[in-house]
Design a protein around this nucleic acid. Structure first.
Lengths: 133, 133
DNA sequence: CCCAATTTGTACGTATGTATA
DNA sequence: TTATACATACGTACAAATTGG
């Protein structure tokens, strides 16, 4: 059974179609946290596209925080981490942005994870949530 | 004058070196908000790397929120937008994440911009900041 | 308004490096 | 050690959007 028809001539680009197919598997629960995806090579053959197209799709899924990829190891569905609660004092402002490469390094963050900034404190958004006092 | 030596044999990958070079131009003020970058083709020749390597670098800069890219038009240094203030009521929680493709579409967001989520409200992080009452 | 040049987007192929199993 | 798998980097080609004459 072919779950998805990946075709050049149906609107979205190939990598977007592939990304949508994998995204659906995750949101539908066919793939759950910790599950490995197939290898890029395998998926390239499965969807009949180039490996580059698969990598494009995976990169977008990484940037959505859905999967994690390590060199030499297949991509895995990310485990939602319990967010640590940080109290926000009255009057304090918070905004979000992507981390600098240095911050990503220092805070050991995955690609595609934003940060919350409160009074010069930088919180990885996948591990912290803020609550107004 | 060659501002940066891009070389295969000095640690970081080529696209990271290129990204660092362009990032420095922005943080140093050699490129300011609204400025166009050179074309990918031009930069590929300038740094003596493939266009693919330039594109890799630009994608990372997009994901850091530093530049904006439109098809058919050169990449531009992003204009920092004044963030609209939203008040956070006592007890309300906020967390950050990357938007889904649908949210990105609906909210007309650039690639690489996270969202702030407060009680099922989704705020593009480049246009809103929250403040505890 | 149309056309041509420019520029980015997508997609393929190939090769080699590096980390993991 | 060997095989597998992802990362990087080069190339080519064509599609699609924008710009400017």
């Amino acid at each position: 059974m072919v779950a998805f028809m990946i075709s050049r001539r149906s609107g979205p680009s190939l990598y977007q179609q592939v990304a949508a197919a994998i995204r659906k598997k995750i949101t539908d629960g066919d793939l759950v946290a910790g599950d490995q995806l197939k290898s890029e090579k395998y998926m390239a053959e499965e969807y009949k596209v180039g490996r580059d197209t698969i990598r494009d799709a995976l990169q977008h899924l990484r940037n959505e925080g859905l999967i994690d990829t390590r060199r030499g190891y297949r991509s895995r569905v990310r485990t939602p981490i319990e967010r640590e609660l940080v109290w926000l004092r009255s009057g304090e402002k918070v905004f979000g942005r992507m981390p600098t490469p240095e911050e990503r390094e220092q805070l050991d963050m995955s690609e595609g994870v934003p940060v919350l900034v409160v009074a010069d404190h930088v919180y990885p958004a996948d591990r912290f949530e803020l609550r107004a006092e």
